[in-house]
């Protein structure tokens, strides 16, 4: 198992390098000009100097390697300095955003907590709801609860977040005034009242995200439980005279959770993708919104770094899912 993990870790390095190259080339070959927004009255030699200042004078491969060094060598140094108060990264050039002229990573660190709060709470909530729903609808297959649950999950699959989001805003924020329609990033939680405010402003985006995730996971949980109910060991357990609770909640549940756990791990990166839309609807000041505004402003270093961070998340959680599968299921060992 350890060798498998190490092998996968080593293999993920070229994968990540290749992905970063793909993103870099896509941004590079695309016909957008970062100088397009500069007024026509600016003389060409000044434009050329501006181009040089943005680091665009060098050939492609040198810029790619420089970006790699900045991302993988200088940025970790900055983090190290920040934690231990050392000064390794002093005076070294970091990845600079063209919009704000500040390091991209500082922006990411500012934006990440909002995304993590909303997405994380939604995900945890969705898992907590989805697993009991999946268990019960599999146990009572084709019952009214199951039929209703199937319908709800189908709706969760089919109704896109950019429709449920505005709908919830109209119903709960505009007409009923229960929740604010816009997420206030500047809110500091220090007492009960502000905590209540934080919960209220998180409620709508979390609900929209959680509806989608619950649909997927409970569907998977149900299918996995149904697969296991037909197995011989369930009949054996019942024949031994075990209580129904032990059969379902200990024997069947533990076996059914194996694939579900990997699905939960695999779903985490895609949630960041789904959060792009939800953040846009509720004006949550998170990473997804930073990406959208960076794309619209043609801020290539920012887009490159953010997209690559999404890719890293995907690769890391794929790895975690693979390793978890091997840990949870002794029959599946990769070596």
């Amino acid at each position: 198992m350890l060798t498998f993990t190490i092998r996968r870790l080593v293999l993920s390095v070229p994968t990540l390098l290749f992905i970063s190259l793909v993103i870099f080339l896509l941004l590079e070959l695309a016909p957008g000009d970062p100088m397009a927004q500069v007024p026509l009255t600016v003389p060409p030699d000044v434009k050329e100097k501006m181009r040089q200042a943005l680091g665009l004078g060098e050939p492609i491969h040198i810029r790619y390697v420089k970006w790699l060094i900045q991302f993988f060598w200088i940025e970790p140094q900055v983090l190290f300095d920040h934690i231990f108060g050392t000064s390794f990264a002093d005076g070294k050039l970091r990845v600079i955003s063209w919009q704000t002229r500040s390091p991209v990573m500082d922006l990411v660190v500012q934006r990440l907590p909002q995304t993590l709060w909303v997405v994380g709470v939604a995900y945890v909530l969705a898992v907590i709801i989805a697993i009991p729903v999946g268990i019960y609808s599999a146990y009572k297959q084709y019952s009214i609860f199951d039929q209703f649950g199937t319908f709800i999950t189908m709706i969760g699959f089919s109704v896109p977040p950019f429709f449920t989001g505005p709908l919830m805003v109209v119903i709960f924020a505009v007409n009923l005034h229960w929740f604010p329609s816009i997420y206030d990033t500047t809110l500091v939680v220090d007492d009960l009242e502000s905590l209540g405010k934080q919960i209220r402003q998180m409620f709508l985006p979390v609900m929209v995200l959680a509806l989608q995730i619950t649909a997927q996971i409970s569907r998977f949980m149900r299918a996995s439980m149904l697969d296991n109910f037909n197995q011989d060991y369930v009949r054996t357990a019942r024949a031994k005279g075990m209580s129904e609770y032990t059969v379902v909640m200990v024997h069947v549940l533990r076996n059914s959770l194996i694939p579900v756990v990997t699905v939960i791990a695999l779903g985490i990166p895609s949630i960041f993708g789904g959060a792009i839309i939800t953040e846009q609807v509720f004006a949550v000041n998170g990473i997804g919104q930073a990406l959208i505004s960076a794309i619209q402003a043609n801020d290539l270093p920012m887009v490159q770094t953010l997209t690559f961070i999404f890719a890293v998340l995907i690769v890391v959680f794929n790895l975690i899912a693979d390793v978890l599968y091997g840990v949870l299921d002794p029959r599946v060992r990769y070596d």
């Binding site: 994968t15 290749f18 992905i19 793909v22 993103i23 896509l26 941004l27 695309a30 016909p31 957008g32 990166p269 960041f272 993708g273 792009i276 990406l291 959208i292 794309i295 619209q296 887009v303 953010l306 997209t307 999404f310 890719a311 998340l313 995907i314 690769v315 794929n318």
Partner: peptide
């Protein structure tokens, strides 16, 4: 195929749709 599955698709689609 694995590589494509590891790509962050929605951000890339957004980038490409603007650039091309």
């Amino acid at each position: 195929t694995d590589l494509f599955l590891a790509l962050p698709l929605l951000p890339l689609i957004l980038v490409a749709s603007l650039l091309f």
